[in-house]
Design a protein around this nucleic acid. Structure first.
Length: 419
RNA sequence: GUGGCUGUAGCUCAGCUGGCAGAGUACAUGAUUGUGGCUCAUGUUGUCGCGGGUUCAAGUCCCGUCAGCCACCCCA
């Protein structure tokens, strides 16, 4: 079909039949976050580009090739946000939330943008939900944030998702580890793939999960991050695990977890659905103790996570958790003729005032077509309004599930729905 | 950004070595003069993704392009 205007590549419309499930997920997330004491924060869709360049890290692909950058009329460079943490931290610093003291618990939802080649579960405009807890380095907070996302996924009914955690240590241990990795790989330079040679420079941790067989063999005996943690980092990581167990959160330690953004330190975690194919990360996050300072605030430790709506919906569909369809109307009005429609309009309006969800479709003319539609939209009742009913003040209310019907006067009808 | 597969009715898809564009489903009408779901009958729906080329003739072959999917990459 040749349509004149088509949607931009890597974007999608949320059509009415899907918007119900989107709203449902948003609702469940907001509810879960609020139970943990998190409050919503809404930041703009675009920010100054250098906010991301400085925080996310200028070596990452997200900044190097995936950011939607543009100049406004005054030649200032902005970017559509590629992720949610930097804007929240910017707002935290700019609004001096530190002055409130204590821990700030924030949640957000909204579209993010990355210029990448689309495939299933990967879009150029995609929707994330996430939280940030800023102001404490206590390992309980790490566990709380993880437990929140865990609770959210459980509440949606998802079973096929596993949680993996890791510690990336502090800056010193990360640097030490990266050096150890580079030293280890140096003598193997001839044997590893081209991608891995680039990783050696750019992001040595990624060497560990290369899929090329020869690289895999080498990676299997490469040094592991956990051995490079100092005592403080180790203690923190162990404490997180104790709290997670206390909160009955199931997890697995995976020393190979790498996060895509440069600002992560200490705890890192991922929720994976391995039935999803290549794009299997349903959500993930980690601690970012240096980020607030980097963005210009007083040093303040933080941790957060983000997850994608699209992969969540794919997972729900896969596990056949369709959350039910949108409920049908309470009443479908079967109105026979234009004369009856005048009284019908009046009646429908009176019922709506009683909070009754009522639909009518003037395109369907015959009674048969209207009854059929009432059935199709899954209405509980069909209300028949014809000239006979109006003349006799006796309206037929048919219960479509039970196939029973009663004849009611207008006041009886309103009484029936006045609960 | 790299490689591969696919694009035909609203949806799912068939269409062979070029020869009248199809099925199921959905939708509409009727069987049932004002009562839905089941059944049966009849009917409507197409720039065959788009542009070009080869040919008497292209949904089919060739080139280009756009889009989706799969893998890499990256990550949500």
């Amino acid at each position: 079909m040749a349509v004149k205007y088509t949607i931009p590549r890597g974007t999608f419309d949320i059509l009415p039949e899907k918007s119900y499930i989107w709203n449902y997920i948003k609702h469940v997330f907001a509810k879960t976050a609020m139970e943990f004491g998190y409050k919503e924060i809404v930041t703009p869709i675009f920010e100054k580009a250098d906010l991301f360049e400085r925080s996310v890290g200028d070596t990452s692909d997200i900044i190097q090739k995936e950011m939607y950058k543009f100049k406004d009329n005054k030649q200032r460079t902005f970017a559509l946000r590629p992720e949610g943490t930097a804007p929240v931290v910017r707002s935290y610093v700019e609004n001096n939330m530190q002055a409130n003291g204590g821990l700030q618990r924030l949640y957000y939802m909204g579209p993010m943008f990355r210029y990448d080649r689309p495939q299933k579960g990967r879009y150029r405009q995609f929707y994330q939900y996430g939280v940030e807890a800023i102001g404490s380095n206590h390992p309980y907070v790490d566990a709380e944030v993880i437990a929140l996302q865990y609770a959210f996924l459980k509440r949606l009914g998802l079973k096929g998702i596993v949680l993996e955690i890791n510690s990336l240590g502090n800056k010193a241990s990360t640097e030490g580890y990266n050096k150890a990795l580079r030293d280890f790989y140096e003598p193997h330079k001839e044997e590893i793939c081209g991608d891995c040679i680039a990783r050696l420079e750019k992001n040595p941790r990624r060497l560990l999960d290369c899929k090329v067989p020869t690289c895999k063999e080498i990676a299997a005996v490469a040094p592991v991050m956990i051995d490079y943690l100092d005592d403080e980092c180790k203690e923190h990581f162990e404490a997180v695990q104790i709290y997670l167990k206390a909160m009955d959160v199931e997890f697995k330690i995976n020393p190979r977890i790498v996060r895509g953004l440069d600002y992560y330190t200490h705890t890192a975690f991922e929720f994976l659905n391995n039935k999803l194919g290549a794009q299997n990360a349903v959500g993930g996050g980690g601690r970012y103790n240096g980020l607030v300072q980097q963005i210009g605030g007083k040093e303040s430790p933080g941790i957060g996570f983000a997850g994608g709506f699209e992969r969540l919906i794919l997972s729900l569909e896969q596990e056949e958790l369709f959350m039910g369809n949108e409920p049908g109307p309470d009443v479908y009005a079967v109105i026979l003729g234009d004369k009856a429609l005048v009284k019908g309009s009046e009646l429908m309006q009176k019922l709506r005032a009683l909070d009754v969800k009522i639909e009518y479709d003037p395109i369907k003319v015959s009674m048969k077509a209207q009854m059929k539609t009432a059935n199709k939209v899954n209405a509980k009742y069909a209300l028949i309004i014809g000239e006979n009913e109006i003349d006799n003040n006796a309206y037929v209310l048919k219960n479509l599930d039970e196939s029973t019907q009663d004849s009611l006067t207008e006041s009886e009808l309103l009484e029936h729905f006045n609960k």
